[in-house]
């Protein structure tokens, strides 16, 4: 028996030794592992990149910042290029998980709008280059909502019981609650969190569901009257169902940035920077923004949009509207408290 156990262990060890050997061989071509949000790029540009540079791209996707973070933190997956949002960049930078960019390799950075550079989440753009940006607001169906939608209060209106979709993420659900209570959307205090939790528990009977990407399809189909969404969902949804409209409530909301960064664990810093530079090239940025319908931070790409696209208030809200919006910052130890509170709301 003992012999057998040691035989098994020996085989396991042998197997473990083989793994690096297997991945080590046959690698004449540089391979770049890109880890992005789902449906967040024009896939054609990936082939174009390979054709131009000879660098092969392995593309995979995630559905939330937290999922991406959890995977990298656990040491899973060797990613070279990632697309975290503002607060996540701040958190990862704090934890020394990102590689400082060498801008000598990213000359196309000059195309990025100066007003969207050097933001508080990444002072000096040390770790990240903006990729897309947008807001959070209310997507509503004008055939079901008669009154003007301009306040978060409507998400607590009994009239719309079982007619409201909320975005299934703790940060985004707490954002309207905190603002309604007069707190900052980055509030870090137990009392405020408790009040906001109570407010969301109070809202829960009115909520039809807490959903993710499928909100867009459901709103197009007319499943509900109101939904808390990212602005990026709106353009596609309105195209398919002209009854839909979008509003950024007057109390203020969240403006967010998704940026491109390189995890410290990458082994291909140079190729990754080449890819980031490629993404900043006006023609590529234009192809991407046309494909996914968010807002581009790339001035040269923006200039090539049609006036109609440029004046779309969903993608490019007025200065005055943007002034009301805040960027998320990393909540530190409160990240988990928000998640627990959200569980209390949903699990009730």
């Amino acid at each position: 028996m003992k012999k057998k156990v040691s035989l098994v262990l020996a085989l396991v060890l042998l197997l473990a030794l083989c793994v690096p050997l297997l991945t080590g061989c046959g690698e004449q071509q540089t391979v770049l592992n890109v880890y992005n949000w789902g449906e967040y790029i024009d896939k054609d540009i990936l082939t174009q990149f390979t054709e131009e540079t000879g660098i092969k791209i392995v593309y995979s996707t995630f559905t939330s910042n937290e999922e991406m973070y959890a995977k990298l933190k656990a040491g899973g997956g060797n990613y070279d290029v990632i697309f975290p949002s503002d607060y996540m960049i701040e958190r990862m930078a704090k934890q020394d998980m990102l590689h400082p960019l060498n801008y000598d390799n990213i000359p196309n950075i000059t195309h990025i709008m100066p007003s969207l550079r050097n933001k508080a989440y990444d002072p000096g753009d040390v770790y990240s280059v903006p990729y897309m940006w947008g807001t959070v607001g209310i997507l509503y169906n004008t055939s079901m909502v008669d009154e003007p939608v301009d306040s978060w209060d409507i998400l607590w209106d009994e009239k719309y019981a079982q007619n409201i979709f909320m975005y299934d993420s703790s940060r985004d659900c707490f954002m309207p609650a905190m603002i309604k209570l007069g707190y900052s959307l980055n509030e870090r205090s137990d009392e405020a969190l408790q009040e906001a939790t109570d407010l969301l528990i109070q809202q829960r009977p009115l909520v039809l569901g807490y959903a993710l990407d499928d909100i867009q399809d459901k709103m197009v189909a007319g499943e509900a009257a109101l939904a808390l969404v990212y602005s990026g969902y709106v353009v596609g949804a309105v195209e398919e169902n002209p009854d839909l409209a979008y509003a950024i409530p007057k109390e203020g909301s969240n403006v967010w940035f998704d940026a491109v960064a390189i995890p410290k664990s990458s082994k291909n810093y140079e190729a990754a920077e080449k890819f980031i530079d490629f993404l900043c090239r006006p023609d590529i940025a234009l192809a991407n923004v046309r494909e996914i319908g968010y807002s581009t931070p790339n001035q040269s790409a923006f200039d090539q949009l049609t006036p109609e696209e440029q004046n779309n208030p969903v993608c490019y809200p007025s200065e005055e509207e943007l002034a009301r919006c805040d960027v998320y910052v990393d909540l530190g130890e409160y990240n988990e408290k928000y998640d627990d509170a959200f569980l209390r709301v949903k699990g009730n």
Binding site: E66, A70, F165, S169, R204, V207, G209, D339, K346
Partner: peptide
């Protein structure tokens, strides 16, 4: 349930994937 009705498996998943 539209995310309104969580079971034990859901909170395990959440601890791994979103709370981390």
């Amino acid at each position: 349930s539209g995310g309104k009705f969580m079971l034990f498996g859901d909170i395990i998943e959440q601890q791994y994937l979103s709370t981390g």
